[in-house]
C-alpha cells in the first residue's frame, strides 16, 4: 500500500511539473506582454525597460528556473498589471469564487440529480425526453447567453435582482444559476447513465424479486451506488467552477478567480495565468490523488493491479 501511495504521489508531482512547464511555455507563445503594457507607439527603449523590469529580457530557461525556484518557496510572482503578489490577488478573490461555486454546485446537483434519476427510471418515455432536452440545452447554450438573458429578464424587465457585482445574496443568484446550469446538465447526464447501469445490475433485480417497493429499490439500493461517479465528477467540477468560471464572472462582473484569469490572459499577465492554472491544477491533482488512495483502500484489486 505504501508503495502504491508513493507511486501515486510521484505521478502527481510529475503531473504538476509538466503542468508548470506547459503553462509557462504556452503563455509565452501568445507574445510579449511588454507591448501590451507599453502604450501604442512606445519607443524601443520604453519596451526594453518594461521587459527588464519583469525579467522578460532573460532567456526562457532562466525565467523558468527562476519561476520554479520561487514556486517551491510558495511565491507565485508579482502581477505585471496589478503590481501585486499573485497569491495575494488569488486569495483576495478566492472567497468570492468559493461562494459562487458552492451555490452553483448546490444548484446543479439539486437540479441535475433528480432530473437524471427521473430520466433513468422513465427511460424512453416523456420524462426521459424532457431530461435529455434539458441536458442538450444546458450543454449547448453558452453561459454568456444564459447570463445576458437572465440579466435582461430578472434585472431589467422584472427588476428583481441586481445586474452585476458582489455584495449580497441577491447578487449571487443569477451568476450561480448561469454557472450551475451547464454543470446541472452534465450531472443529469451522468446520473441518468449511472442509474441505468445500476438498475440493470443483478442486485437490483434481486431487490425487485424480493418484492421491495419500487421507490425503495430506487432510493435505497440504486441511487446510493449510482451517486459515486456523480460525486467524483462534482468534486472535479467544483474546482473548475472555482478557477475557470471566466465567462460568467466577466458577464456578471463577479470579482472571482475566473475574472482574474480572464484579466491575466487579456493583459498577458504571465504570473497571474501561471498562478491560477497551477493552483487550479494542484487542486485537481490533489483531489485525484485522494480519490485514488481512497479507492485503493476500499478496493484491494486496484492497488494490486497498480
Amino acid at each position: 500500500m505504501k508503495q502504491f501511495i508513493a507511486r501515486r504521489i510521484g505521478y502527481s508531482l510529475l503531473s504538476l511539473l509538466l503542468l508548470s512547464l506547459t503553462i509557462f511555455l504556452f503563455i509565452r507563445l501568445t507574445g510579449d506582454p511588454a507591448s501590451l503594457l507599453a502604450e501604442p507607439g512606445a519607443s524601443a527603449a520604453d519596451i526594453a525597460a518594461i521587459q527588464k523590469k519583469f525579467g522578460l529580457d532573460q532567456p526562457v530557461w532562466y525565467q523558468y528556473i527562476y519561476f520554479m525556484g520561487n514556486l517551491l518557496r510558495g511565491d507565485l510572482g508579482e502581477s505585471f498589471y496589478y503590481q501585486t503578489p499573485v497569491l495575494e490577488l488569488y486569495l483576495s478573490r478566492l472567497p468570492n469564487s468559493l461562494l459562487l461555486a458552492s451555490v452553483a454546485m448546490s444548484f446543479s446537483l439539486l437540479l441535475g440529480i433528480p432530473t437524471g434519476i427521473l430520466a433513468a427510471v422513465r427511460v424512453g418515455r416523456f420524462w426521459d425526453t424532457v431530461g435529455k432536452f434539458f441536458a442538450l440545452l444546458g450543454l449547448s447554450l453558452p453561459s454568456f447567453l444564459v447570463g445576458l438573458l437572465l440579466i435582461l429578464f430578472f434585472s431589467v424587465y422584472l427588476e428583481w435582482l441586481p445586474s452585476s457585482g458582489s455584495g449580497g445574496f441577491l447578487n449571487l443568484l443569477m451568476p450561480a444559476f448561469a454557472l450551475g446550469w451547464y454543470f446541472a446538465a452534465a450531472h443529469m447526464r451522468l446520473t441518468r447513465s449511472s442509474m441505468l447501469e445500476v438498475m440493470g445490475s443483478e442486485y437490483i433485480k434481486l431487490a425487485r424479486l424480493k418484492g421491495l417497493p419500487e421507490f425503495k429499490v430506487i432510493a435505497k439500493h440504486a441511487f446510493k451506488n449510482a451517486l459515486i461517479p456523480v460525486m467524483t465528477l462534482a468534486g472535479i467540477n467544483l474546482i473548475n467552477m472555482i478557477n475557470v468560471a471566466v465567462v460568467v464572472e466577466t458577464v456578471f462582473a463577479w470579482p472571482g478567480i475566473g475574472r482574474l484569469l480572464y484579466e491575466g490572459i487579456s493583459f498577458r499577465d504571465f504570473p497571474i495565468v501561471q498562478g491560477v492554472v497551477i493552483i487550479g491544477g494542484s487542486m485537481i491533482v490533489a483531489v485525484n490523488l485522494l480519490v485514488d488512495i481512497v479507492y485503493a483502500f476500499v478496493d484491494p484489486r486496484i492497488r494490486l493491479e497498480a
Partner: peptide, 18 residues
C-alpha cells in the same frame, strides 16, 4: 469607479440605478 467589463451588463446596471 467600478469595473463592469460587459457592455450589456453595464447598461443593465445603469437602468437599475446600480
Amino acid at each position: 469607479l467600478t469595473g463592469i467589463p460587459d457592455e450589456a451588463t453595464r447598461l443593465a446596471a445603469l437602468r437599475r440605478g446600480e
